[in-house]
Design a binder for these strands. Structure first.
Lengths: 225, 225
DNA sequence: CAGGCTTTCAAACGTATGTTTCAAACAGAC
DNA sequence: GTCTGTTTGAAACATACGTTTGAAAGCCTG
């Protein structure tokens, strides 16, 4: 065994269990027994459960953010001064995610599911960690989105970005389950690339929707401007 | 005090704490101390923590699903045989949610956050409970969506519905946090009605997007038809 | 006001958690 | 081989959890 095969085994087990069950619902004993290492190994190698969570994120987010920066570099160079289009920007992100080297066939959906958890179950420490470590490529993505949608107000853009993130994280986080359902119901095979190919135009269309809707509230409640 | 003021106080406290922190992260001791009732009261009145979770959902989901059925009835009657449009269908749902009688000013966002949690943190028992109790209006909503988008293939529709659910559940499940961020960043106040007013056209546009995208994968990977 | 049923209360139970301890096993350098 | 620092191991720690208990208090009916 390599010197710190233990560390990787813990990370592998933790990653999968976190993605399956969430953070609080996954105990160190589950992790260590799945990883076939001693319970104390987590605190020895990582210091605490929270630090382990950070390490799980860092392991895939660090190479991913590097890939993403490169993709953005290439894109901006290719556009030669002009701001990349919305489709190009979304696609640069999607392609970076899909083409990341995977540890196994479940890699990409675990990756997405973890991102979704980070958003929805974030316990303060995680959000702070992610913001601090990976805020830069995220900000850059935001800037590109902004330049690709100059017609939107800041507030509109903000919310539509949230909608995009939601559709993406949610779909990807359960893409295995959704794929199975589709297989059983309609007998259709679907690859993660195909899901992406359907998702991107959905997002682009939503992002570029014409109007904010006027809410017709017949009585009670104040209508929204 | 009314006879079972205790029950309502527990439900109120539980609802708010669940929405703030999630299910596993909220202990019975937090709930009972916030509600100012004895710890044993939860198990006495509800039987278990899981049953309390179900009761919290039932309290707002039962009247909501009734409201929703009525809204769908009215919509279908108004359309007089012709299938309602996508916008009408989405709006019937949104309006039913927004116009539910609220116990307090935070009511609607708690409501939404709980729905988001139900989707993202569902622990089996909850999903089963919701499916059993409220599967009917959900199926009806799905049927309306199908009739409103006859141009879509079953597979396309399936995935786009997932995208819609994702954007909605995800956004709503963290809408308070997102609102705060927006408040700090841009100094803008946002109501839940405004979020809905932005979300619906986003979803409608995405749902009706023209094309599935052709994926340009420069090398490796097989392009998608 | 007496009786029986319901509700509250403080305390304890058993279990599971994250973390710590300290001795044993191991690794590589001299 | 011996010595050093690192890693593993079994066990225990303290704490928090959901749940149960059994007695006290409250309430309503007769």
């Amino acid at each position: 065994m390599a010197q710190s095969d233990t560390v990787d085994r813990i990370l592998d087990a933790a990653e999968e269990l976190f993605a399956d069950r969430g953070f609080s619902e996954t105990s160190l004993r589950m992790i260590t027994s799945k990883a076939k290492v001693n319970l104390a190994a987590v605190n020895y190698h990582f210091g605490s459960k929270n630090a382990l969570i950070h390490a799980v994120f860092a392991r895939f987010l660090t190479p991913f953010s590097a890939t993403l920066e490169t993709a953005f570099d290439e894109l901006e160079e290719r556009c030669d001064g002009k701001p990349p289009t919305l489709n190009q920007t979304l696609w640069a992100l999607t392609e970076s995610a899909v083409r990341m080297p995977q540890r196994n066939e479940k890699g990409i959906s675990i990756f997405m599911r973890l991102l979704g958890l980070a958003y929805t179950q974030s316990q303060g420490h995680l959000r702070k960690f992610l913001e601090q470590e990976y805020g830069d490529p995220f900000s850059r993505f935001m800037r590109l989105l902004k330049e690709a949608t100059p017609q939107l107000s800041s507030v509109d853009r903000y919310w539509r970005i949230q909608f995009m993130l939601g559709a993406t994280a949610f779909t990807m986080s359960s893409s295995d389950a959704l794929r199975d359902i589709l297989q059983n119901k309609l007998g259709v095979e679907t690859t993660i690339q195909e899901i992406a190919a359907r998702l991107v135009p959905f997002l682009a269309a939503g992002m570029q929707a014409e109007d904010k809707m006027l809410i017709p509230l017949p009585d009670s409640q104040t209508p929204v401007a």
